[in-house]
């Protein structure tokens, strides 16, 4: 018996089904080839346009210099490790603080009014101020206060500034997620005798968090890039290293190296976001 003619459970497929599957395979193969061909043509066109541009020779020398690339890469990579560390420390802090602020804004009891007002003000302010400004204010303003116990190392200050800025966004994402959970869920939880906190913790939050994973990952990607902003307060990270090279050697290729590293870091996150979105869509459809 030819391969592929027996279905699961030992049932022999009908001739019609075998033919149908052959056609499906052929069609899948054909769309694959069409996709590859059109991609190659498209890329060739882009390259042709760029290479034939009048200023191409100068751009190539300034941005695509293999020797400068190889020379700068080790230092840029070392700087990039600082970006990764800032990201890895700031992200959990942002998640925790964002969730706390979202929860504070859900508290209804009058005792919590001052807390709630504070949370609203915090979100309003830090969503409005550009991240770069927050970094400058924290980076130069905080140490200038000369308060006991305030850190003065730039990396820590950068982490604090990024956390302050991103927590405001993430809190809003969590709040939107809480709002998407159907009110019937809370009513059902409360009617079973669960308290507000219990209903939140066991019923509303687990569903809310699931709903906001894609937008949260999107904010992560954005944060990965924004770690470069801390270069402004003197942190020697990837962008700063590239800058140092660029200004001493009059060649911009190190910037390209830094850009490449950032892209390499964000691509896995972007694909993971796509994967989660597709999985959610499949679940909904099922």
């Amino acid at each position: 018996m030819p391969a592929g003619t027996v279905a699961g459970g030992g049932r022999v497929k009908s001739a019609r089904q075998v033919e149908r599957e052959r056609l499906r395979r052929r069609r899948a193969y054909r769309s694959g080839s069409v996709a590859s061909a059109s991609t190659i043509i498209f890329l060739a066109l882009v390259v042709a346009v760029v290479v034939n541009a009048p200023g191409w020779e100068r751009v190539r020398a300034a941005f695509f210099d293999p020797a400068a690339f190889a020379e700068a890469l080790p230092d840029v990579v070392a700087g990039f490790w600082v970006n990764v560390q800032i990201f890895l420390i700031a992200e959990p802090l942002i998640l925790i603080a964002g969730l706390l602020i979202a929860l504070v804004r859900e508290l209804r009891a009058p005792v919590f009014f001052p807390l709630r007002a504070l949370a609203v003000m915090y979100v309003d302010v830090f969503r409005g101020v550009p991240t770069l400004l927050v970094i400058l204010l924290v980076g130069f303003g905080l140490p200038a206060l000369r308060l006991q116990g305030v850190p003065d190392d730039e990396v820590t200050l950068g982490v604090i500034a990024l956390t302050l800025s991103y927590t405001a966004y993430v809190a809003e994402v969590f709040r939107a997620g809480i709002a998407t959970v159907h009110p019937g869920q809370r009513a059902a939880a409360r009617s079973l005798g669960l308290s507000h906190t219990q209903a939140m913790r066991y019923v509303v939050l687990p569903q809310a968090v699931r709903n906001v994973v894609p937008p949260l990952l999107n904010d992560f990607v954005s944060l990965q890039k924004d770690t470069a902003l801390v270069s402004t307060i003197g942190v020697i990270e990837a962008l700063r290293q590239a800058q140092i090279y660029a200004s001493s050697k009059f060649n911009y290729t190190p910037y390209l190296a830094a850009a490449l590293l950032f892209v390499l870091l964000t691509i896995p996150m972007a694909r993971f976001t796509d994967y989660l979105a597709a999985r959610t869509a499949r679940r909904r459809g099922a």
């Binding site: 159907h182 019937g184 869920q185 059902a188 939880a189 409360r190 009617s191 079973l192 308290s195």
Partner: peptide, 17 residues
């Protein structure tokens, strides 16, 4: 909360978690 613990409610739309 104590009152609701003594009363069971079932909704038209089930509202299972």
């Amino acid at each position: 909360d104590a009152v609701r613990k003594r009363i069971g409610m079932v909704f038209q739309s089930y509202n299972l978690f």
